[in-house]
């Protein structure tokens, strides 16, 4: 936040404080208020009015490096180059590329997912033959992209891994199915539909797989309660796990 104090303002304008980054952060939605996560008791520490905002969605700059390499071109750059050559409008299909903890993630626009997945499977330089399924993640605070579908692909030819992340808003939970490209995703997509309510368009038979057919709701979503009953042990009552004190 830029200060009201003239001296501080002068310092900021002299670019000695990261005011711009702070401005960027202010654009982000609020993730958390307060400190220590204690909601049930009064917070006397003074941190109760702390506001934590979501980190801006960053894209990793080139070079991407590799699983064990950073700062110089590596395996990940080869994958990205091959994909760029293969997908004509790469910048339109892939929203951002993130390299974190030795793993490469392509954030793919949902309507372009089948196209990108097919290229990743078929191009000789890519050859990600094996899909190890889709995992859903629910970020309720990520407005407009609440539901994420995360695909992990493995290339046996080149012995590499890559991650695709696709988002869709909660109001329109549709992502194209890639069962026609990776038949193994049949059950994985059914599972993600079952647990998160993401509708995979084009799936041959998108039905629940773990929960009963007549189940209401999608249990792995963050707005779905864990459930449970208080347990009494030696005279003391322990509340169910989702009502216990948490420290997040």
């Amino acid at each position: 936040m830029s200060s009201q104090h003239p001296e501080q303002r002068a310092e900021q304008s002299a670019d000695r404080l990261p005011a711009k980054a702070a401005q960027d952060r202010l654009q982000q939605p609020i993730v958390r208020r307060g400190m220590f996560g204690a909601k049930t008791t009064g917070d006397t520490s003074g941190y109760g009015r702390l506001v934590v905002r979501q980190a801006p969605k960053v894209s990793t700059p080139r070079p991407y490096g590799g699983p064990d390499v950073t700062g110089e071109p590596g395996e990940f750059d080869e994958i990205a180059d091959a994909l760029e050559r293969s997908v004509p409008d790469f910048d339109d299909a892939v929203e951002r590329v993130v390299v974190d903890r030795g793993e490469l993630t392509f954030f793919v626009k949902r309507e372009r997912l089948p196209d990108v997945a097919r290229r990743l499977r078929d191009e000789p330089d890519l050859r990600f033959e094996l899909c190890t399924g889709v995992s859903g993640v629910h970020y309720p605070q990520d407005a407009g992209a609440e539901l994420h579908a995360v695909y992990h692909l493995c290339s046996i030819t080149h012995n590499r891994r890559v991650r695709l992340e696709v988002t869709c808003p909660d109001a329109d939970p549709h992502i194209p199915s890639i069962v026609s490209i990776y038949p193994t995703n049949d059950w994985h997509e059914r599972e993600t539909y079952d647990f998160f309510g993401i509708v995979f368009d084009g799936h041959p038979a998108l039905t629940r797989i773990e929960m009963p057919d007549d189940w209401v709701g999608h249990p792995q979503r963050k707005d779905y309660p864990l459930g449970g009953i208080p347990v009494e042990y030696r005279g003391a009552q322990t509340p169910p796990p989702d009502q216990r004190r948490s420290y997040t």
Binding site: G133, V137, H138, H152, Q220
Partner: peptide, 23 residues
């Protein structure tokens, strides 16, 4: 395979297991 997601807290934000039996 295990896909672990953290939001910076003391609990997993999401853990997904790609169990070989399932596939």
């Amino acid at each position: 395979g295990v896909h672990v997601v953290s939001d910076g807290g003391t609990r997993p934000y999401r853990v997904h297991f790609r169990d070989p039996s399932f596939t």
